[in-house]
Amino acid sequence: MIYLILFAVLLLLMLAAAVYATFQRDLLYAVIATGVISLVLSVIFYMLQAPDVALTEAAIGVALTTIIFIITIRNTVRHEDEHDKHSREKKIQP
């Protein structure tokens, strides 16, 4: 029973993170949300008895994908609907 709940919670978390990543306007938050997706996905792989896949997802999803996305954001813009062409100074706000 508890597995069912765990599965349900994990799947819902993942879906919520995916929806959040899709509709969030701040790209940094969307990137952190993809980190959450990969974390939860890795736990689900683990529960589906695929530790190899879980390990791969963990190793790639935790830091590497995040750093590449973040560097792209650093080099470009932080907000999705930024039309302003020279807004690099305002870019880093926590």
């Binding site: 190899d52 879980a54 390990l55 791969t56 190793a59 590497l64």
Partner: peptide
């Protein structure tokens, strides 16, 4: 054990 070249290299 789980893991291998890709995972280790990534780490």
């Amino acid at each position: 054990s789980p893991g291998g070249g890709f995972q280790g290299g990534t780490i």
